[in-house]
Design a protein around this nucleic acid. Structure first.
Lengths: 344, 344
DNA sequence: CTTTTTTGCGCTACCGGTTGCACGTACGAT
DNA sequence: ATCGTACGTGCAACCGGTAGCGCAAAAAAG
């Protein structure tokens, strides 16, 4: 025989009072007499009563669930980000509904759809690298589901965003390289569509220009971040008449692929050619050749901020709503982290 | 002015029919006349009506949400596992509520509590390495929330489990090493509490015994999987009068820490001492010294199976429930994967 | 001792759907 | 003409709580 979970109804029946009395007694309503209150609360404890969150959330049109969509959880950047999101969520009694886009816009749409169906209170997303239309996300507006973008943010003004100012970071990194004597600095960038790529490129061009050097577009390669594509880029760079002295790669994964290719082609890593990268993932400490320097983008912090922002937005919902809505925009300042050079 | 979401009520009002008619028309009930049906369906389409899942789930006491608790999402093993879980979930229209225990039983309890409050339909969990009491999980029984354990499973008979048969895998690996001529095979194991550790140790002892060799317990170290602890173990092993010819490590992370220590102490990795490990994570391909061989535990497959099992259990719920419940137990067969030896 | 206020609790509607049952109408069969 | 039977639709209960309002009894004020 199934031992049904206790409900207010059950408690009310046993105590011969009404459900509303029970409800109020449990929430410590002042208008309930002390003796009834204690009777109710004691029985509740005895029965291990716990209010059915589903029912409450349903009534209050709130679930304390925020959807989180990431391209790939297996990338350490994102697993750190979700940890930051989770931490902030727990602190405010929110939970996370999880989904991956696998960098596929169709899949992304599908996951967004699922989240919408589940009526999450809000959605935090780092866009798939192929996503260039945002209809499926803007549609959430109608459902009153706020969206906070982080790291891979859309080119929209009307959106809440948390991201890293890679323009400045990249310029700094390029300067750092020049100061160290690397004259020909190559750059393996990501897909043009990605705003992250644009930022990086802008920063790179700015950095090179600052050195009063002519920009050599042969030094700039664009990839889709796949290993093959990175190897292709490396092939081109190594085939140049004047090989680069240093190579900046889009992130640590691209870095690892680039280094792998270079090693196979008898380049002494960080000696013949210096490698620098973005992300500063812990895992690079275990890799054969960590980059000489890496731009730390604080994924945990970004995720954390994104969730904090979401909670603020959610809390403001009841507020005055004085006509035009304001959109929040938070930049995280990246820092350049030097690594122990490893030359094998 | 907020543009409220359409409800059945709204449709009913506009069409001057009752909500039940609308509801039935939308679910294509045979008793509704064709003309009404189309009228309703057309208006629904026009208003972009979508049923409120929360209301339905509430009524049906079902949410299509399954909780997933992992020790660390940043470990590739678990990020792959959750991907497997997610894939199976999507296929059956389930979603995942995510939480990490950070290998901390208190935190695990807290997360379980949260999931319970949210009334997830089921819970899939890989235990924290310190967890040795399961009350907080068995308590879910009362709430009719089934639990499926995977990889790090409890020592309980009365539980649904999906895990890897590492006993057999370890024996095979030890044999493989002996066949290759490694006579003294050391073993850096995880915490005793972990059933995974016990399995491995059993397999190791079995493997050594099969070679008709005396078991040397100096060759067996126990760690808590932290880097410090692994370095400590390595220190002891390297201090032995007869150093091991090969070292089996608990997993690829321990492997990396062990190798790091060995390298710092001028051991030629995989030449002076051979290293083999468990997990076979993709990331090891980028590391300085991948293990010579690794036991693939198919985390994606394990996660996938766990979710499939969960769905089966959930679907069986309505069924006859002929008294005693049966518990499912699925073993995944690991395989030994050889790697390109890298000796620098 | 009446009037007003406070105290303690119940009735009922509501959130957004689903579903068993009843009711009225039209239609073919007897 | 009468009866059984599809057919099409509405009423109302229900899921598990919350909350406004009303009402009686007790306490305070007049």
């Amino acid at each position: 025989m199934e031992n049904k979970l206790p409900t207010v109804k059950e408690i009310a029946r046993r105590l011969n009072v009404s459900v509303s009395t029970v409800s109020r007694a449990l929430s410590d309503h002042p208008r309930i007499g002390l003796r009834t209150k204690t009777r109710v609360q004691e029985l509740a404890k005895e029965l291990n009563y716990e209010p059915n969150a589903k029912a409450i959330f349903f009534k209050q049109r709130k679930s304390f669930i925020v959807g989180v969509i990431l391209p790939f959880i297996r990338e350490e950047f994102f697993s750190q980000a979700i940890s930051g999101i989770e931490a902030a969520a727990m602190e405010h009694d929110y939970t996370i509904l999880f989904g991956q886009s696998y960098d596929n816009p169709d899949r992304e749409k599908q996951v967004v759809e699922t989240m919408k169906k589940q009526r999450v209170d809000g959605l935090i997303i780092s866009l798939s690298k192929e996503t260039n239309k945002y209809d499926h996300l803007q549609a959430l507006d109608k459902y009153d589901i706020p969206v906070v973008y982080f790291d891979r943010v859309p080119q929209l003004e009307q959106a809440h965003k948390v991201y890293c100012d890679l323009y400045k970071g990249t310029t700094e990194m390029v300067n750092w390289l020049f100061n160290r004597g690397y004259r020909r600095v190559a750059f393996i960038n990501g897909p043009d569509k990605l705003s992250a790529s644009k930022e990086r490129l802008k920063g790179y061009l700015e950095g090179v220009s600052k050195q009063k050097l002519k920009i050599d577009m042969q030094m700039v390669e664009t990839t889709d971040l796949s290993r093959e594509s990175t190897h292709e880029a490396m092939k081109k760079l190594l085939a140049l008449k004047h090989r680069p002295h240093a190579i900046v790669t889009f992130n640590d994964y691209v870095h690892m692929d680039a280094v792998q290719y270079a090693e196979q082609h008898n380049i002494l890593i960080n000696k013949d050619i210096a490698f620098v990268s973005y992300a500063n993932l812990p895992i690079t400490n275990y890799t054969a050749y960590p980059p000489l320097a890496s731009i730390e983008q604080y994924p945990y912090g970004q995720g954390n901020k994104a969730m904090e922002l979401m909670i603020r937005i959610l809390n403001e919902k009841g507020m005055p709503t004085n006509g035009a809505r304001t959109y929040h925009n938070e930049k995280v300042v990246p820092t350049l982290v030097m690594h122990q050079p490893v030359i094998r």
